[in-house]
Simulated assay, not measured.
Amino acid sequence: MFKDIDDLSDSSVLIVEDSSLTQKVLSACLDGLCKVDCVFSAEDAIQHCLDNPPDLILMDWILEGMTGLEACKKIQAMDELNDIPVIFVTSNTNENQQELCWDAGAVDFLGKPIVARTLVNRVRTHLKYKRQTDILKQYSFFDGLTEVFNRRYFDMESQRLFKQNLRQQQNLAVVMLDIDYFKFYNDHYGHLQGDDALKAVAKVAVKMVNRPLDSVFRYGGEEFAVLLPNTDKDGAQKIANAIVDAVKGLELPHCKSRFDVVTVSAGVAIGKYGQYDSVQSLINMADKALYQAKDSGRSQAVILD
């Protein structure tokens, strides 16, 4: 797989360097290999990573304010950032300083003055490793049957988005979906056809969720979840209703349902800035809305905020 990763043009590198001249030299060396952003301080680097995580960081050791070493340690301590590899760029590569680089969590270091070919080869190698890791991680986060994200990834992504939206003072909407009378469906039609129904519902949910940052997950059994960052009440309600209507519109026969076709119920909760103390509280509210949708007759979406 590593050899197959040749095009890195959509990979991103963040250069953290307080010298404009060095920024230009590093950027020029990487021109054509990947996308490059530059900041002058460690503080700006951390904020940039939180807002738009790069695939790799080139960090100067000596910076005004927070040092590169301190910034690397801080990045490594943050769950949402600690998978970003850091390469130190330093004029001092003695043994003691190398030890400090490794202890801080860096993956490599480059000596100054910069040797262009060495820089390009090191960056290319670490970007390939990062791409390979991301691909393998993505495979481990998918549900094999429905081909949407799995519960493991939901638990991680919901935590990350909750913290991000809290930091950016935005809303986070959670939609919980459950196939109505699914046990009766499985008992009557068999598990193979039940699997087909699960795949059909997942495909519809993905189709109705259009924005790149919105995600569909298999939460467990016949239950799915949708995460909608920066989404208000009307937007979340619209998506939930669209999924409910689209599943019913498939007209998959279900003689054990009062609707005669496969349907889903949906519960929606909106995590407004500062309203919930944890993402689990928000998920619990979406679950409560889902139970209300079930109790109110099924094949509908109920929103609580």
Rank of each mutant, 00 (worst) to 15 (best):
L14D: 01
S9F: 07
F40K: 15
L127I: 04
V25M: 11
D51S: 12
D51W: 05
S27T: 13
A116R: 07
K24V: 11
G111V: 11
R124L: 02
N82H: 14
I135C: 11
D155L: 09
D18H: 09
N82K: 15
A71Y: 00
C72S: 03
G105A: 09
A45V: 03
K130E: 07
D155A: 11
F88G: 03
L50F: 10
I46R: 00
R117K: 11
P113T: 10
L8S: 04
F149Q: 01
S11E: 13
N94Y: 04
D37H: 05
V148W: 05
R117T: 03
N82L: 08
D37Q: 11
D155W: 04
D18S: 14
L63I: 02
V25Q: 08
D44F: 08
K24A: 14
I62V: 14
T22M: 13
T146M: 08
L63K: 01
G68N: 07
V86E: 00
Y139T: 10
V39F: 13
Y139I: 14
I84W: 00
L26P: 03
H48D: 02
E64A: 14
Q98R: 13
N92P: 04
D60R: 02
L69R: 05
N82V: 09
Q23V: 01
L63N: 02
G32P: 00
S91L: 06
V86C: 02
V89M: 00
D143P: 12
D44Y: 09
I114E: 06
